[in-house]
Amino acid sequence: MKKALVAALLIIISIPMLIAVAAMPPHGDADSPVHTHVSARYIEHGEEEAGAENLVTGVLLNYRGLDTAGEVIVIFTALMAAFAVLITHPGRGEESGPTTAALDPEPGTEPESDSKAPPPISPVVSFMVRLLTPFTTLFAIYVILNGHVTPGGGFQGGAILGGMFIALTIVLGEDKVRTLLPRRAAPWMQGAAVFAFVAIGVIGAATTGYFLGYPTDASLHLVRELMMVVIEIGIGLGGAAIFATIFLQMEAE
């Protein structure tokens, strides 16, 4: 009965969705709304106006910079929400060790992955992570710094950086990796994206009169690129720190 109800509900919901998909213009149609309004201007003048060879970055950081700033703030807020849910002990860390040991009297039930007794890591995994770390870091930096030229950018590079941090934490343990994200610097790094956006936005407001305004003069191409790179670095560091802290927070007792 319940299963039939769920199936019927799914079918009823899927019908309007399929109708909506069928009503979409065909892929690559020149008359579709996405191709008739602003995108023609973006494609024609985007490179000299926005100052980024990668049009996606140009739209994200320049034309739609305020939207991206809002997105960054949303991600930062999501981190705070995750903290609010995940923090169970206010004084987490060192003093929580003995309490969990006391709470876990039978050892054979669940292999707990806390920092006191880490589960054995396969030497293959350990070796591969150690071997790949410099290359992954280099790739992440490349993706972040080249976001305005090639596909990618701060968010993608930050995710790669954060993933690398998580892999290192699994292999080396939290204590060794903590030096990369010290407790005192962590809040600043988590907010790096917001800070970078606000800083560039205020600089733009001071020089052009608009928040997140970029200098439009053609000779200031390098300045625009530099502003974008600063935002990309901020998003990259901030994203990596946020991913890493969510992971550490989930792992912590």
Partner: peptide, 16 residues
């Protein structure tokens, strides 16, 4: 751009 995000976030971080 979206493909890179999907690979890094979707296949990587969320899975972890």
């Amino acid at each position: 751009d979206v493909a890179m995000t999907e690979a890094a976030v979707g296949a990587g971080i969320t899975t972890v």
